[in-house]
Amino acid sequence: MAASPVFLNLDLLALSPPGWGGVLLAGFAASLQLAVGGFGLGLLIGIGGAFGKLYGGPIVRDLLEVYTTVIRAVPELVLILLLYYAGTDAVNSLLMLVGLPRVDISGLAAGIFVIGVVQGAYSTEVLRGAIKAVPPGQIEAARAYGMSPFKTLHRITLPAMLPYAIPGLSNLWLIATKDTALLAVVGFSELTLVTRQAAGATKAYMLFYCAAGVLYLSLTLISNRVIGYIERRARRGIAGPM
């Protein structure tokens, strides 16, 4: 009977304390930080991993193959638990080894590390495919001009592979935004966990979960718009739809 009044009590979403709106937005900001950080770290790992897989020696290739296979075969939730504990443990035992005191690793840093490692495996594969799609002649031409490997990378390979990489990478970005929710399970106060707390405190479950859903959804929709713009920009000069 009391369902609809509770659901419609929008005062609960007010920004200042009796309402939980401010808390939700803070959680959303934390989620965004996690997603941006994790995606960025994943991109760095991915660039390194892709080049390692394509140009590295046999041992590097095999190790990277193990990394991408294992990460993609194990559920993100399990990886997050493992890396969250193992990562903080490893840093602390490393510090103990060099004789420094233990530090409390912030949830944000650990979360970014976890999401970055997971995303790194996927973006390695995306970027590897994209680099392979760059015509070899272009890279050979860059070498013929006497460009150093690094200059070839940032002038030729990275820009030329971008149109091929963007669909995969944008998918990864959307996955990153949604994977941040999994950190709720290890107790990091991002949007989903904050929502659960707000809902539990006020008993207005539907209201808060729907509000959080709207926030996530708007992030996705806005991302899609921005991605569309970037994609058009990266594709300028390429004929026809691919």
Binding site: K178, A184, T220
Partner: peptide, 16 residues
């Protein structure tokens, strides 16, 4: 596809 599965799960279980 635009919202995390964990949120959908909790929406259904706790909310609904």
């Amino acid at each position: 596809r635009g919202t995390p599965l964990l949120l959908q799960l909790w929406l259904l279980y706790y909310g609904l």
